[in-house]
Design a protein around this nucleic acid. Structure first.
Length: 423
RNA sequence: GGAGGAAUGGCAGAGUGGUCGAAUGCGGCAGUCUUGAAAACUGUUGAGGGUCACACCUCCGGGGGUUCGAAUCCCUCUUCCUCCGCCA
C-alpha cells in the first residue's frame, strides 16, 4: 500500500511512474488526495467535538462532587447534543476512511525507475544469460514423457486423488524432489538465511498484509469453514512474521528461508503451456525473504540475484535473468528480476524464480517499522525471491540432462539423491 | 467438544466508574562517577492521527452497548491458561 505522506509530496512522479504499468495513476492519486482531505476535515471536526465533550464531562464530575447537581444536569443537555454530533461525524469518518483504504488497496506499487515500460512478456529486458544449451539426441522427449517413461511422476494418479495439477512423485522422482529441497535450503542457510518452517494456511489479515488480498482473491484456495487461505507462496507466512513489528536498526539485515508447498488455483489457465510440470495447483518452493533498511534494500536485491545465479551455475542449467517490464510486474513489487531456465525439449524458457523488492509497499500494510537514529518509526523494506521453485527446475533437469542411458543427475545433487542416473 | 479462569506499555505487574495513556519493578536510551567497564545514582523511555510547532483526538485483545464520563460495568467474538473428553 502506498503511503499517503508520499502521495501528498510526490504525486507527479508517482503518477508518471505508474504509467509504466499502463494505468492512469494521476486520476487515482488525485482521488486518494481528495478523500484524504475530506477525511482529515471530518477528523478535525470530530476531534473538536470530542474535546469539548471531554471538557464538559470533567466539569460535570467536578460539579457533582461539590454538590451542584442542578448545574451538572444543565451541562448534560449540552453533552447530549455533542454526543449526537460526534456519532454522526464518527460514521462519516469511518465511511471516508474505508473508502480511502479500499482505493489504496487497488493501487499497485510504484515501479522502480529502472523498470522498462511495456505491456507484455516480450517487453521484459534480458539482462544476463549463462550456461550451455545442450544439443539433444534425436528422439529427445519433453519432461512429461520422460516422467512416464521412467515412472517418476504420475499425473493421472494425481487426477484420481485430487484433480489436474496435483501430481504424484514416485521413487527416484520423489527422492529428487526431496534432494532439491534439501540442497536449496542448505545453499540458503550457508548464505546467511535462517531456516524456518511456517504454517501452510494463513488468516485473512496475513493475506492483506502481503498484498495477496484483495488483489488475488480468486487465486488462493479458501477454506471457508475456518476462513483460512492455503498459501500461494511462503512469502505470505514468512513475511507476516514481521506484521506489527518495530525493529531496531541493529536488527538488520533479516534473512529467512523456508520450504513450503504452494497452492494456486490458476483460474483461467489452459493449453499446451500448462502441460506436465509447467503449471501446477500444488508445487514445492524454497523461498528467501529479507527485511532491510531502505538504504540497503537494492544492494540486498542484487545479492539475492547473485545467490540464485550461483545455484543455477552449480546445477549446470542454462538460464537467463530478466528485468520485468511495467506491464508484467507484480502488483506489490517495485522491481522484479525473473530467472528462467531453458527447456530444451520444449524449446522455451520457463520461469523458475522471481526476485523482488517491495520497498515499503508491504511494510505499510504489515506495519513493519524500525526506529531510525532519531528514534522515529520508519517503514522497513521487504524483499523476497524463489530459491528456487521446484517443478520447472525439475523439468529443466529432466529435459536437459536426458541421454540415451537415462537422466544424468547434476553432480551437486548426487550426494542428496544417492544416485546419479535415472534409468 | 464440555466446565472454569484470564487478556493492560519491550517484559513482569498494579489499577474495579471521573484526579488514568495508565503505579511500580525489570529492560532500553542519555548523563554523573570511572583510565575504561560493572555497580550505584539522576533523568528519560508505548503507538497512531493532527499541527509550521503547540493544542487537541484515538488506542488498556477485536467488535458492540450502558453512562455526562469506561482499562474499570454489560453483550459478543478471538486467543491463552487450568481441569475433563478425544486424538497423530
Amino acid at each position: 500500500m502506498l503511503q499517503l505522506q508520499t502521495i501528498r509530496t510526490h504525486k507527479q512522479e508517482m503518477a508518471q511512474a505508474l504509467q509504466k504499468r499502463n494505468i492512469d495513476g494521476a486520476s487515482l492519486l488525485e482521488e486518494v488526495l481528495d478523500l484524504d482531505e475530506k477525511r482529515r476535515a471530518v477528523q478535525t471536526q470530530l476531534d473538536a467535538t470530542l474535546a469539548e465533550s471531554n471538557a464538559l464531562s470533567k466539569e460535570i464530575g467536578a460539579l457533582y462532587k461539590t454538590g451542584k447537581a442542578q448545574e451538572a444536569n444543565a451541562l448534560k443537555e449540552k453533552t447530549g447534543v455533542l454526543k449526537e454530533d460526534s456519532k454522526k461525524l464518527g460514521e462519516d469518518l469511518s465511511a471516508l476512511a474505508e473508502a480511502l483504504q479500499a482505493l489504496l488497496y487497488t493501487i499497485p506499487n510504484i515501479p522502480h525507475q529502472s523498470v522498462p515500460a511495456g505491456t507484455k512478456e516480450e517487453d521484459n529486458e534480458e539482462l544476463f544469460k549463462e550456461g550451455n544449451i545442450p544439443v539433444l539426441e534425436d528422439g529427445a522427449l519433453p519432461h512429461w514423457e520422460l516422467a512416464k517413461k521412467y515412472d517418476i511422476i504420475d499425473f493421472e494418479l494425481g487426477v484420481k486423488i485430487t484433480g489436474a495439477g496435483f501430481p504424484v512423485y514416485k521413487g527416484k522422482g520423489a527422492r529428487l524432489q526431496r534432494a532439491l529441497i534439501s540442497y536449496f535450503l542448505d545453499k540458503n542457510t550457508a548464505a546467511g538465511y535462517t531456516e524456518v518452517q511456517v504454517p501452510h494456511l494463513v488468516n485473512e489479515a496475513s493475506g492483506y498484509a502481503t498484498g495477496q488480498l484483495p488483489d488475488k482473491e480468486g487465486q488462493m484456495y479458501h477454506v471457508t469453514a475456518d476462513d483460512l487461505y492455503l498459501i500461494p507462496t511462503a512469502e505470505v507466512p514468512v513475511t507476516n512474521m514481521f506484521r506489527d513489528v518495530i525493529l531496531n536498526e541493529s536488527d538488520f539485515p533479516i534473512q529467512y528461508t523456508g520450504y513450503t508447498p504452494c497452492f494456486r488455483r490458476e483460474a483461467g489457465s489452459y493449453g499446451a503451456h500448462v502441460r506436465g510440470l509447467n503449471r501446477l495447483h500444488q508445487f514445492d518452493k524454497v523461498e528467501i525473504v529479507r527485511v532491510e533498511h531502505p538504504t540497503k534494500s537494492y544492494a540486498a536485491l542484487d545479492a539475492m540475484v547473485e545467490h540464485i545465479k550461483e545455484i543455477l551455475r552449480e546445477l549446470e542449467l542454462p538460464y537467463r535473468v530478466l528485468r520485468l517490464c511495467g506491464g508484467d510486474l507484480g502488483f506489490t513489487s517495485a522491481l522484479t528480476y525473473d530467472f528462467e531456465v531453458f527447456s530444451t525439449a520444449q524449446d522455451r524458457w520457463l520461469e523458475i524464480s522471481s526476485v523482488s523488492n517491495f520497498e515499503t509497499y508491504q511494510a505499510n500494510r504489515l506495519k513493519l517499522r524500525y526506529k531510525d537514529e532519531n528514534g522515529k518509526s520508519q517503514l522497513a523494506h521487504t524483499l523476497n525471491g524463489s530459491a528456487l521453485a521446484l517443478p520447472r527446475v525439475l523439468a529443466g533437469i529432466l529435459e536437459n540432462c536426458q541421454t540415451p542411458q537415462g537422466i544424468k543427475i547434476p553432480k551437486v545433487l548426487v550426494p542428496y539423491c544417492g544416485f546419479d542416473t535415472i534409468a
